[in-house]
């Protein structure tokens, strides 16, 4: 095997970009919560951005690397170390056989993604390698990783092999063999006291009281302790209330749908959301800012900022272009010097 779990930490699961085409059967889309970080980690090791990675939540996880491989850790800063040396994030690193990768306290963010050259080798279920915990489907035996689990890595492609040979020889003063270049401009887990999450008014926005609509885009929200991969439960001072009672039929929801149940505290639906829902939808988080929510720890605060649908689309397209640029930049690094 290629990687052995020494300590699983709070929650470590195998994830990719999700399971599509089965939502009409009630199967959750799932996948990495911070897809941007997961994709960058993959691109940095020469993988396709859809390969399976490990989603490591909060600190405490550690892994033994059983055979040499190129790895990258992207997302929240969970104080990663490789054989005791601080491991730089957003950068490909060559790990020798027998090295130990550990994660400690959360310095910023709360989820980080470990990609290995080739991609983690778990069977595809319904076209995806992501773990759907509640359904006990996909990933590693349909569950979170435990100590002593052994994970394989799929055969690396040519890009990955060339990257590995380039980086293996780039040994730095601290003993780490790491690339001199990085992609840390993709980090969203900033140090700002209060983060901003951009959102578009939702399909039932007009059905809420004026006070509620103003509160949504005016007040500060706290991430509730009950938040998980399914959704971010928010706590705000002013509750969100409908002007008139509304009888709604269940209908499809999407990533980032902000539902307001009768108690008036909104829930932002994340990767493991149900496919349909029956609560009124007051807003819709822009896809690009899902990562901000994915990196906020329970107890931290943020504000919503209202943007137009057009702007949310523009941000999405710009985000995709950035990822394509990164892929191209990695290719350039592989080109032999003239």
């Amino acid at each position: 095997m290629s990687l052995t779990v020494l300590r699983p930490g709070m929650l470590t699961t195998v994830q990719d970009l999700g399971r599509y085409g089965y939502q009409k059967y009630g199967v959750v889309a799932g996948g990495a919560l911070d897809t941007g970080a997961a994709r960058v980690a993959n691109l940095l090791v020469g993988n396709d951005d859809r390969e399976a990675v490990l989603e490591i939540t909060l600190g405490g996880a550690s892994f033994a690397i059983d055979r040499p491989m190129i790895i990258a850790v992207s997302g929240g800063d969970l104080s990663a170390t490789l054989d005791g040396s601080p491991l730089p994030l957003w950068r490909p690193v060559y790990a020798k056989a027998g090295s130990v990768l550990s994660f400690g306290a959360c310095a910023s963010g709360c989820r980080t993604y470990l990609a290995a050259g080739g991609g983690f080798d778990v069977p595809e279920v319904m076209g995806s390698r992501s773990t759907y915990l509640r359904g006990a489907v996909g990933g590693f035996a349909g569950r979170a990783l435990k100590a002593d689990d052994e994970l394989g890595v799929r055969p690396p492609n040519g890009r990955t092999m060339r990257l590995a040979s380039l980086i293996a020889s780039a040994v730095r003063e601290d003993g780490l063999a790491a690339a001199s270049w990085h992609a840390s401009h993709f980090a969203v887990a900033g140090s700002a006291e209060e983060q901003v999450v951009r959102a578009v008014p939702g399909t039932h926005y007009d059905r809420f009281t004026l006070e509620s609509r103003e509160a949504l885009f005016g007040q500060s929200y706290r991430i509730g302790a009950q938040s998980d991969r399914m959704g971010c439960r928010l706590e705000g001072e002013t509750k969100l209330l409908l002007s008139l009672p509304l009888e709604l039929l269940s209908e499809a929801v999407a990533l980032g749908t902000v539902q307001a149940p009768p108690d008036g505290d909104p829930i932002v639906l994340l990767a493991d959301r149900q496919t349909t829902g029956g609560y009124p939808r007051i807003a819709q988080v822009a896809s690009v800012d899902i990562a901000v929510l994915a990196q906020l720890k329970p107890g931290s605060r943020f504000r919503f900022e209202a943007i137009a649908q057009t702007e949310a689309e523009r941000l999405y397209v710009a985000g995709e272009r950035d990822l394509r640029l990164l892929r191209a930049a990695v290719s350039l690094k592989l080109r032999p010097l003239a």
Binding site: Y20, G21, Y22, Q23, K24, L249, S250, E251, A252, A254, T275, T276, E313, Y316, V317, E320
Partner: peptide
Amino acid sequence: MIECVPAFASVAVHYEPLTVM
């Protein structure tokens, strides 16, 4: 187009914006 999700009285169509564009 990625997929359709029909419900009681509605259908949601999920799509990938860049591919559409």
